[in-house]
C-alpha cells in the first residue's frame, strides 16, 4: 500500500495572500485541520487550525478589540504559515507516512511530486489502513490448544469451540517442543471464556496467550520449556 493509494486528492488549499479570517472560515466550514498554502501549483507552506487559533487568540492586551480585529483582518497567512513543510512522495509505502507523522508529531502530510502538491494523507487515513490490515480490528482471541496424538483431536476441538458459539477465524496446527500437536485457534470474540470451558470440558489443555500479560505478549506458541510434557487430550 502506497501513499498514493490512500491520499486525498480533492484538496482545499489557500494562497500566501489569503487572510487569517478567510482561512479560519474555511477551516470551520469544511471541518478540516490543515490548509496547504499553494502558489502556482507549488506547495510553499502549511497552516493548521492550531496555528490560526494561536494567532487569533494572541493576547495583545494593549490593543483594543477593534484595533486587533483590524490588524487580523489584513494579516495574510504567509505571516504565520510553516514554510519548512514536512511532505512525502506518492510512491512511499504507507508505513513511511505513519512513521513520519509519529516522529514529527503531526496529523497530516502533504503529498508532493517535484514540489507540486498532489494530495494529503492524514493520521486517520493511515490508522484506518493499519487497523484493516490487522483484520479490521475485529474482536479476536487466540487459543493455544494441545491436541495430543489422537487423529480426531483437531476435529473434536473444532466441534467444542463451535458448540460454545465461538466463530473460528483461523486454525494453524504444528508440533510443539515435546512433539505434541498443538492447534492455534483464532476466534472472533474478545471473550473466549465459553470456548475455553468447552475445550477443557473435553479434556483439552488450553493456553490462553494474551490475557493477564504485563506487556505486549510475544507471538510465540510455546511459552518456554517444561510445560508441554505429559499434557494432552
Amino acid at each position: 500500500m502506497l501513499v498514493q493509494d490512500v491520499m486525498h486528492t480533492t484538496l482545499t488549499t489557500i494562497t500566501p495572500k489569503t487572510t487569517l479570517p478567510q482561512a479560519m472560515r474555511l477551516v470551520q466550514q469544511r471541518g478540516i485541520r490543515h490548509l496547504p498554502v499553494v502558489e502556482n501549483g507549488e506547495l510553499v507552506g502549511i497552516v493548521s487550525d492550531r496555528d490560526l487559533k494561536r494567532a487569533m487568540a494572541s493576547p495583545a492586551t494593549s490593543l483594543e478589540v477593534r484595533e486587533l480585529n483590524y490588524l487580523l483582518d489584513r494579516l495574510p497567512v504567509a505571516e504565520i504559515m510553516t514554510r519548512a513543510v514536512i511532505t512525502i512522495a506518492p510512491m512511499f509505502p504507507v508505513e513511511e507516512a505513519a512513521r513520519l507523522m509519529v516522529k514529527e508529531k503531526i496529523s497530516a502530510l502533504p503529498v508532493t511530486e517535484g514540489g507540486r502538491l498532489v494530495g494529503i494523507v492524514t493520521e486517520t487515513d493511515v490508522l484506518e489502513l493499519l487497523v484493516k490490515a490487522m483484520g479490521a480490528g475485529e474482536p479476536s482471541s487466540r487459543l493455544d490448544v494441545v491436541l495430543g496424538d489422537r487423529p480426531s483431536a483437531l476435529a473434536e476441538a473444532v466441534k467444542a469451540v463451535e458448540a460454545a458459539g465461538a466463530v473460528i477465524s483461523s486454525i494453524v496446527t504444528l508440533a510443539n517442543r515435546a512433539g505434541l500437536k498443538e492447534a492455534v485457534i483464532r476466534v472472533a470474540t474478545i471473550n473466549p471464556g465459553p470456548a475455553i470451558k468447552a475445550l477443557e470440558a473435553r479434556g483439552f489443555t488450553v493456553r490462553e496467550s494474551w490475557r493477564g500479560q504485563q506487556g505486549p505478549p510475544h507471538p510465540t506458541l510455546s511459552p518456554g520449556g517444561g510445560e508441554d510434557e505429559g499434557e494432552g487430550a
Binding site: E95, A98, R99, V102, E123, L130, V131, M134
Partner: peptide, 17 residues
C-alpha cells in the same frame, strides 16, 4: 489518543517478523 494508536500499529507493522 489516535496518535498513540497509530504508534502502536506502526510498531507492529515494522515489527520483528
Amino acid at each position: 489518543t489516535k496518535s498513540d494508536a497509530l504508534e502502536a500499529l506502526l510498531a507492529w507493522a515494522e515489527g520483528p517478523e
